[in-house]
Write a protein that binds this DNA or RNA. Structure first.
Length: 809
RNA sequence: GCAGGUGUGGCGGAAUGGCAGACGCAGCAGACUCAAAAUCUGCCGGUGGCAACAUCGUGUGGGUUCAAGUCCCACCACCUGCACCA
């Protein structure tokens, strides 16, 4: 029991001791006993960078560690796994620079990360560790790709890539900073390359509908919806004057068709070349197209969005509803990649069209007015759909906008000049990378048979050893230089063929990793049916806001596809999704080397201990908001743990709760239990701080009270509490103990202090019984404020347990 | 511009429509100490008052209510995404 060494709280010794014990006892291994209730808690697995663990990593890890530890004590079979999202650019760039195999770089980084995570005492099930760069893992990433290919969801397409003119390398968007190469600062241009694409757009509606069935925090749902960007409208055909061809446009406002005064096509629209001979100002058009093509994404978004354009001379269109002849313009505010690449412009009721019309002096025709009469359209476009009423629109006149939309759609379909149409902002997923450090795409290109998938039995298709990890001069992956790897026989006809040399993006391995954790060593399948049936869906997934669009959408897409292929049992992978806020430097700025405000978690563990770091990161503030680091705050948490440690000297032999502390104990259990499940770790810790302040005030506490306290605190500070448990001679291990339960009836004090107010202002407080009747409560209240009852009492309000309010005139 | 979020002491932050500022940090005073650190005790939103107490106070302006940080309307500021998607 008590010995000299344990007089002083020494986290270094205690933490190492318990980490070893937990490892040896496999304390946190998820069981394969599928009869127990399960709980699957998941945090985004890290990219093992060369910098090691950042002080931001432990925030979400500790949060779900708390939930996992608590759930285990409540009798759940908990799966809380960890792994490595280890393919990626920084590793590859490091490998290029230092001429080390990325495999070795990854191995070293993983070892460092693992040691750091281990030192923080997370209850991960290390037996289920996975690594996306392990061929036994990416075998199944490739397997899923083959399934997508066979289902017609993977295809090749010419796409522009970012090309650094100096490095002669294709760059990821993240490597292009302000239009120049991040590494060398040279100009980055567009270069067209044939790329693998995944047809995520086929799943737009399914991904949208699925959101209604899951419990994601609101802003995550909203950004998923915005990213998919569904809009309902119509496609309408405008006849070209004196031609057979029709110019098809997409619009969400078919109701405003009578207000169309011109049309705009994107600079890449095929009609421009098709009618080259009839266009009267061809030179002008060519010049404009060149200028538009040169604009980088940076210029299109960051710079002033002054409208530009040229008139398409010699060609006009006919408005199908009123037969009016209108001009056609070319402008880069119309995108070829959305809708039909052409629009009808209604400047009176669309901000962009209005701006364009003002600049080029084009006419405005108002077709919608306000509910209560005319509105001015010469100052700004009138775009209010909710209150608009149709005018100057023939058969639509007098209708509200929403009615007019439907009536016009019916009309268009009846007359055969248009159809209802749904569009999405979501684009297909560019799946190729011209890089070495990624999963090889398991496809062979045969001159005769085209793209042929390799046979499943040949998976994993492993990365070959190469001399250099540099992409080639013409922008191809380093794999392209490996001719004996590239040249193969066609699996289909046996003729000469070439392997695909592009690799998959980092998003691939992370799109299904949560499935592998359920059965990480399975060689027959990505996971067994039994394991998937039992563990899915993930009950709680937490990750950063930066992943709420792409990673979340991509993994939901793959999961839904695997559901359709009958591989997984649930439509949605994650039942609940939360996001944590960033941890900023002491100065309130983002932590970065250049700002010199980076905090290394190792230093905190060394100086204060892992339990202090964990407690501090949970106490720092609301979990979903960003928070600034404070060394003083860390010290405060260490002080709290010291006070918990020293409490053992005040513990009596009594095993029950004491009379005076009983209510407080039940209240604290209730608060901590609920707060842990609703991300309110800061208030849970505050409640425990308040509890020990009471113990110190009383200068004593019972064994039962201490037991409950350290059990409640265990998920937050697992080492110190386990040590105290052992010191006190309590039975077994703390991590194997039952989570404390509270009695609702005992969470309310028998005598309560309530406020007495006059006209809502507190004047005094009185003591009343838990079930005090209204009459006697009011009588007591009046007695307490006797001298202030000077007016006519018009109303007496009693809220049991809260207040008495006397309303006087 | 659109969407989402946030505005409360010196600071981080608490408050199912019911005593605003729990808990922590910093600060001040005291105890212990030769001294410092650590620890312990007390105080700690503003103004007035020796005090009891009074009065103001949750970004701004209105409103609903016996009662508003909390609900409604209109604004302001900051943060985070998306950004010419017809």
């Amino acid at each position: 029991m008590e010995n000299g060494m344990n007089k002083v709280y020494a986290p270094k010794r205690i933490e190492k001791k318990w980490q070893e014990i937990w490892d040896n006892e496999k304390a946190f291994a998820a069981s394969n006993d599928y009869s127990k209730p399960k709980y699957y808690a998941l945090v985004e697995f890290p990219y093992p960078s060369g910098q090691g663990l950042h002080v931001g990593h432990p925030r979400p890890y500790t949060a779900l560690d708390i939930v996992s530890r608590k759930r285990r004590m409540q009798g759940y079979n908990v799966l809380y796994p960890m792994g490595w999202d280890a393919f990626g650019l920084p590793t590859e760039n490091y490998a290029i620079k230092n001429k080390i195999h990325p495999k070795i770089v990854t191995k070293n980084n993983v070892a460092r990360f693992k040691e750091q995570l281990h030192s923080l005492g997370f209850s991960f099930d290390w037996d289920r560790e996975i690594n996306t760069t392990d061929p036994n893992y990416y075998k199944w990433t490739q397997w899923i790709f083959l399934k997508l290919f066979k289902a017609g969801l993977a295809y090749k397409k010419e796409m522009p890539i970012n090309w650094c003119t100096s490095c002669k390398v294709g760059l990821a968007n993240e490597e292009v900073v302000n239009g120049v190469c991040e590494r060398c600062g040279s100009e980055v241009v567009r270069k067209v390359k044939s790329e693998w694409m995944l047809k995520i757009t086929d799943y737009a509606d399914k991904l949208l509908e699925g959101l209604d069935t899951v419990d994601y925090i609101e802003r995550v749902k909203v950004s998923q919806k915005n990213w998919i960007g569904r809009s309902e409208g119509a496609e309408v055909d405008f006849k070209l004057k004196d031609k057979e061809d029709k110019l098809r446009v997409y619009t969400t406002r078919p109701d405003t068709l009578f207000g169309a005064t011109y049309m705009v096509v994107s600079p890449e629209h095929p009609y421009i070349d098709q009618y080259k001979d009839e266009i009267t100002n061809w030179d002008e058009i060519v010049a404009y197209r060149e200028q538009a093509a040169k604009k980088s994404d940076f210029e299109r978004t960051e710079l002033a969005k002054e409208k530009t354009g040229v008139l398409l001379g010699g060609i006009t269109a006919i408005n199908p509803v009123n037969g009016k002849e209108i001009p056609i313009w070319i402008s880069d505010y119309v995108l070829m990649t959305y809708g039909t690449g052409a629009i009808m412009a209604v400047p009176a009721h669309d901000d962009r069209d209005w701006e364009f019309a003002k600049k080029f002096n084009l006419p405005l025709i108002q077709v919608v007015e306000g509910k209560n009469g005319p509105v001015e359209i010469n100052e700004a476009a009138f775009t209010d759909v909710a209150t608009g009423k149709m005018i100057h629109s023939d058969f639509l006149n007098g209708l509200e906008v929403t009615e007019a939309k439907e009536k016009m759609k019916d009309f268009l379909e009846e007359k055969g000049i248009g159809t209802r149409k749904v569009n999405y902002k979501l684009r297909d997923w560019v799946f190729s990378r011209q890089r070495y450090w990624g999963e090889p795409i398991p496809i062979v290109e045969c001159e005769k048979c085209g793209f042929v998938p390799i046979d499943e039995s040949e998976l994993p298709l492993e990365l070959p050893e190469v001399e250099s990890y540099m992409p080639t001069d013409n922008g191809e992956s380093p794999l392209a230089a490996m001719t004996d790897w590239v040249n193969v026989k066609c699996p289909c006809c046996g003729g000469p063929a070439k392997r695909e040399t592009d690799t998959m993006p980092q998003w691939a391995g992370s799109s299904w990793y949560f499935l592998r954790y359920t059965d990480p060593t399975n060689e027959e399948a990505l996971a067994s049916k039994e394991a998937l049936n039992y563990w899915l869906p993930v009950d709680w997934y937490n990750g950063g806001m930066e992943h709420t669009t792409l990673h979340l959408l991509y993994s939901r897409f793959w999961h839904r596809f695997l559901y359709d292929e009958n591989v997984v049992p649930t439509k949605e992978p994650y039942q609940k999704r939360t996001s944590h806020g960033m941890i900023l430097g002491e100065n309130g700025e983002k932590m970065s080397k250049s700002r010199g405000n980076v905090v290394n978690p190792d230093d905190i563990v060394n100086e204060f201990g892992a339990d202090t770091l964990r407690t501090y990161e949970m106490f720092i503030g609301a979990f979903d908001l960003s928070a600034s680091w404070s060394e003083q705050g860390v010290k405060g948490c260490r002080r709290f743990l010291e006070r918990v440690w020293k409490l053992k000297e005040l513990v009596t032999d009594e095993t029950d709760y004491s009379k005076e502390m009983e209510t407080k104990m039940h209240q604290t259990i209730k608060k901590v239990t609920n707060d842990f499940e609703s991300l309110k770790f800061n208030t849970a810790i505050a409640a425990m701080m308040a509890l020990i302040n009471d113990f110190y005030k009383n200068n004593s506490l019972t064994k039962g009270e201490f037991k409950t306290l350290i059990t409640l605190l265990n998920p937050v500070a697992p080492h110190i509490t386990e040590e105290l448990w052992e010191n006190m001679g309590f039975e077994g291990r703390l991590y194997q103990t039952q989570w404390p339960v509270y009695d609702e009836a005992k969470t309310v004090e028998n005598t309560i202090e309530i406020a007495v107010q006059i006209n809502g202002k507190t004047k005094a407080t009185i003591l009343v019984a838990k079930e005090e009747e209204k009459d006697s409560a009011i009588a007591k209240a009046k007695e307490a404020i006797q001298d202030k009852l000077t007016g006519n009492v018009v109303k007496e309000i009693y809220v049991p347990g809260r207040i008495v309010n006397i309303v006087m005139k």
